[in-house]
């Protein structure tokens, strides 16, 4: 396991992006990207969970036996999710209401578990923290991107409600790109989620081809 931090960062953000390369964590990706703000919020919540749980697992990795490691991982992730859930309920209530079910569903999101299994369980605490954080940020990047595309095509705005959800300082981010009646409603509805994600995977593959890397034909393995 390399502790080369630059590789970890680049891997997490783009090269081995959780959504676009590994195709993990599809559920929140399709559901919570009806706008860029929602994607951003969901991604950051997941990043927080991933960073915290990666750190804890790496810290205690010698104490976790092989037999029970998956249940222990799941419990750690579930506890972190509960913390994030309560924190968002308290301090970011509007965003909490929008994300609803999908915050507790971070537990069944393959991405945190897969990273714990593949990386955190075998490395030191600090690299694991960085990996968890940047995998989470890569996830956030993908979600925000998909959310932005869907939102621009669907309602013509970008980062609408950013101030409500993330706080007054973010009001400057709210933009209107297209007139209100030019939107394609389907983009914000479920089919749009599937279509945009599929097309974005193709875009990522184009980038990969240009960089001379192999196209990955199927997603990564889930840890469970």
């Amino acid at each position: 396991m390399t502790s080369d931090y630059k590789t970890i960062v680049r891997d997490g953000l783009w090269d081995n992006n959780g959504v676009l390369s590994m195709l993990l964590g599809m559920c929140p990706t399709m559901a919570m990207t009806t706008s860029a703000t929602n994607g951003l919020g969901m991604g950051l919540a997941t990043a927080a969970v991933m960073a915290a749980s990666s750190f804890l697992v790496a810290l205690f990795r010698r104490l976790i036996s092989q037999e029970v490691r998956i249940p222990v991982f799941v419990l750690i992730v579930a506890s972190m999710v509960t913390l994030v859930d309560l924190a968002m309920n308290a301090w970011m209530h509007a965003l909490y209401k929008v994300l609803g079910l999908f915050i507790p569903l971070i537990v069944s999101n393959c991405l945190p578990l897969a990273r714990l299994e593949a990386f955190a369980a075998k490395s030191k605490a600090l690299p694991a923290l960085v990996d968890g954080l940047f995998m989470g940020l890569g996830f956030t990047l993908a979600l925000t991107l998909i959310g932005a595309v869907r939102e621009i095509l669907g309602s013509g705005t970008l980062f609408a409600n950013a101030s409500l959800l993330l706080g007054p300082p973010f009001k400057a981010m709210e933009l209107r790109i297209l007139p209100a009646n030019m939107g394609v409603l389907m983009m914000i509805l479920p089919p749009g989620g599937f279509l945009v994600t599929g097309l974005l995977v193709v875009v990522k593959r184009l980038f990969d081809l240009r960089a001379g890397k192999e196209i990955r034909m199927s997603g990564a393995h889930c840890a469970a």
């Binding site: 195709l23 389907m186 509805l189 479920p190 089919p191 749009g192 989620g193 599937f194 279509l195 994600t197 599929g198 097309l199 995977v201 193709v202 593959r205 184009l206 081809l209 196209i215 034909m217 199927s218 997603g219």
Partner: peptide, 22 residues
């Protein structure tokens, strides 16, 4: 097309199925 093979085309077809279920 090779670029679409596997997951991307599956997503797009799923999107069409979602439209049908709407």
């Amino acid at each position: 097309p090779r670029l679409f093979a596997g997951p991307p085309i599956a997503f797009i077809v799923a999107g069409l199925l979602a439209m049908a279920f709407m």
